[in-house]
Amino acid sequence: MDDLAGFLRTRRSRVDPATVGIPTDTRRRVEGLRREEVAHLSGVSVDYYVRLEQGRATQPSEQVLDALARVLGLDETERCHVGRLARQRRHRAKAPSGKVRPELLRVLGLVTDAPALIMNHRLDVLAGNHLADLLYGRPAAGLNIARHLFLEETERGLYADRESCTLDVVGHLRLAAGKYPDDARLASVIGELAMGSERFRRLWARADVRARTHGRKLYRHPLVGPLELHQENFALSDDSGMELIVLSAAPGSPAEDGLRLLAGLGAGGSGVQPAVKAQAHE
């Protein structure tokens, strides 16, 4: 699903030659840096770098990866990603199981004033609290956030910051593909998105990676209107690939009033709902 050669090619194409001291003129036909320029600036032979981009080289050393990261201007997330891709030939991580522990569901049930979800690396929602169900207008458990965003929601749907959301989702899936290259279910999700969404295809081709752990999320709820929430991602430390995600409103904000109104409209509903069907296919 993802490979070192393809990632290096996309990163090379985005580097402005002027930023690394290479003069340009109107005769230059290559977007970004040439292969030989990357090799020279990184201190490796042209032949070796060409073999890296063709997927024919052995696993590069940490020193080579550090040099490439410097020349290509990789951030910390990208640097970790390229290291993981380089190690794939020797170690291919097995996709974690998606079974949610009962104790984790109990913790999720304690979150009552904010929408909260348990999500896996494929962006499958494995469980959601009552406010999460109300936010999505359906049981959150069983949703795949990427599929919901790209294939199910309209332009005037739930996501008010749709462009930013799509960048985050594709960047997350790129990271997941690098971590679990043999995950057939992840590959199926990516394939479905590529078949059904032109925007997904364009963003996927860029090979950008993102590791978002917190940030602002804007929603446009049909019953309570705009909701400006803060998303906090809590990655579990048990190698499950799961995250607990909480969407909170600032105290005294219109969004806090909106969540309170939403909870009132849904009073009497159920609490935590695990995605039993999704887990059964793990």
Rank of each mutant, 00 (worst) to 15 (best):
R162C: 06
R212T: 14
D182V: 15
E103N: 15
G196I: 02
R138W: 05
F234A: 07
L175M: 14
Y136K: 00
D182Y: 15
E232A: 08
L105G: 13
R199C: 00
G137D: 06
K217M: 10
L218I: 12
N129L: 11
P102C: 12
G109R: 13
L175F: 15
R106H: 15
Y180K: 02
H148N: 13
G178E: 11
L175I: 15
A132D: 10
V170Q: 05
R212D: 09
G196Y: 04
A235E: 08
H172Y: 15
G178D: 11
F234R: 03
D133Q: 04
N233K: 07
P222G: 06
A205M: 07
A205L: 11
L108S: 04
V100A: 07
A140R: 00
L117A: 09
D183M: 08
V100F: 09
L203I: 05
F234K: 01
L236E: 12
V224N: 02
L108H: 07
G128V: 09
K179L: 15
L173C: 08
L104D: 06
E103T: 15
G225L: 00
L186M: 12
G215N: 07
G142Y: 07
S188Q: 14
A176G: 05
S188D: 15
L143N: 00
G109Q: 09
G171R: 10
W204H: 13
H130K: 10
E243K: 12
Q231C: 03
A116W: 06
A211P: 00
T112M: 02
A235Q: 06
L151I: 02
P222E: 14
R162N: 03
G157C: 04
K179W: 14
D133W: 05
Y136L: 01
P226C: 02
P139F: 01
R147A: 07
A207I: 03
W204C: 03
R156E: 13
P181S: 12
P139T: 01
G157L: 03
E228F: 06
A116P: 05
R174N: 13
E198V: 11
H121W: 12
R162E: 05
A141D: 01
N144S: 09
T213E: 14
A176R: 00
L218P: 04
Y136C: 00
E155M: 04
L134D: 01
L193D: 13
Y159N: 02
D133M: 01
S164C: 04
D239I: 06
G157K: 00
D168P: 01
R138D: 02
L108R: 03
A211C: 06
T166Q: 04
E153H: 08
H214P: 09
P181L: 12
E198R: 10
R138A: 03
R174A: 15
V224E: 01
H221F: 13
R122L: 07
A235T: 01
A187P: 12
R210I: 11
V100E: 08
P102Y: 06
G142T: 03
N233L: 02
Y136Q: 00
V125T: 11
S240G: 11
E103F: 14
G196P: 05
R199Q: 06
Y136I: 00
G215T: 08
R122D: 02
E163K: 03
L175T: 11
L104C: 05
R185E: 15
K179S: 14
I190T: 07
P139V: 02
K217P: 03
D161S: 00
Y159V: 01
P115L: 06
